[in-house]
Amino acid sequence: MTTFTGKIIQKMLRVLIIDDESPVRATLRGLLDKTCPQVKIVGEANSVKSGCLAIREKSPDLILLDIKMDDGTGFDLLKRFENINFKIIFITAYQEFAIRAFEFSAVDYILKPVNPERLSEAVKKAEIIHQKTFNTQLGALRENIENPDKRNKKIVLKNQESIFLFNVDDIVRCESDGSYTLFETTGNQKILVSKLLKDYDALLSDSGFMRIHRSHLINLKHIKRFDRQDGGNVVMSNDAYIPVSASGRERLLELFEEIGN
């Protein structure tokens, strides 16, 4: 669907809404009408089954997808598609088990009741993101959801130019750089991501990472040794030499003691 606005041809974003409660669909519809002029709503569905039919029929660019429906979850719906050629914003009433998985994969989700600003922001992001990039993120999300245990988690890192997909285990350390965070991986790759270190601290502390210094978050699996000199330094598997703060030192030593026992 294209609309002519003077001489500028603007492609409309075709959106499909899937949620099992009609008032929720009405709300989403109302908010899209009001805040996202670039959007055209091409259909609605109220279940996994009808959602699949609607996707095949309307081939939307973007789906607002409820996670929990009567006859299954949004992820059950995605399982029925081999090639995903649409983008998805997940809508959920409740921060369930999966929310961490979303954070790891950098896939957007919106909580009910819907914040209009968040919605329009997410739609804008969905509009410009490359389908291939989105599919990488979605792949990571699905993998993380299917393996909810801590091992083999995938994390998506994005900078201006590219998107990277890593096993969490392959990240050696993160360092704060202003409002950016620098990642170092086992392959000696260095990636600068525009997100604060403290966000990654919150995300990764359950996966074997420790904040040993105001500007350093390290993967404990990659510690090579601990130097007691100069207030303490940690040497990582890639020979990076990381300072340790007083409180970090205490936590580290505690950890060593636990392991030692």
């Binding site: 409660e21 008032p23 929720v24 009405a26 709300t27 109302g30 908010l31 009001k34 009433a93 409740y94 909580l111 009910k112 009741p113 819907v114």
Partner: peptide, 14 residues
């Protein structure tokens, strides 16, 4: 709770 509130949100939008 949150789905009910979303329904209320719908009344506001209307």
């Amino acid at each position: 709770i949150f789905n009910s509130l979303t329904s209320v949100q719908n009344f506001i939008l209307q």
